[in-house]
């Protein structure tokens, strides 16, 4: 494996600080509710897998408001999905960037779910805290099977 947890942690913190101007601190694994949202990108080629970022809905709205420099009440669902899709795109792009050989990045995908610690194929899962809200960054290796919680 070309990347370790420290790399994922550094990339995530860099994205949070440079793109959002927010801090991402190490956070505990928490039990999240049903109203969550995940943005992810697939990497294909020499290595095949998925980089997924799972948010609570309140955090996704907060991040969108910060990124758009507007009140949370003015963030539509489409804009929220655009914002968190870009976050997965940038983190996934940086992971892809250190992989050997030709690899390709998919467009971001949004799902109403959270990649939990029991999902098959997990290579790394890091939990963070941002403004009192949990979020996680998960790297999954494709194994030709359903990789997500149903």
């Amino acid at each position: 494996m070309m990347f370790d947890e420290e790399f994922i942690r550094d990339v995530t913190r860099e994205v949070w600080s440079t793109v959002l101007g927010l801090s991402a601190e190490d956070g505990p694994v928490v039990q999240v509710g049903a109203e969550e949202i995940t943005s992810s990108v697939d990497i294909s080629g020499a290595w095949e897998g998925t980089v997924a970022v799972s948010f609570t809905r309140p955090l996704s709205r907060h991040i969108a408001a910060v990124m758009l420099a507007c009140p949370e009440s003015e963030t539509s669902q489409a804009l929220v999905e655009d914002v968190i899709g870009e976050i997965a795109n940038v983190i996934g792009g940086n992971v892809k960037g250190i992989l050997p050989g030709p690899t390709y990045l998919s467009l971001p995908r949004i799902e109403p779910d959270w990649v939990d610690k029991t999902s098959p194929g997990i290579v790394h899962q890091l939990w963070f805290d941002c403004a009192g809200h949990p979020f996680s960054v998960t790297v999954l290796a494709h194994q030709g099977q359903d990789r997500r919680r149903s």
């Binding site: 994205v15 440079t18 793109v19 940038v90 996934g92 792009g93 940086n94 892809k96 960037g97 990045l105």
Partner: peptide, 26 residues
Amino acid sequence: VTSEGTSRLREATEAGALFLIPKPFT
């Protein structure tokens, strides 16, 4: 301006691009 990173700089310049700014940018 892309999350692809500087590893694609050669491909970018061969296509005719003058530069590649990786995301996240400052």
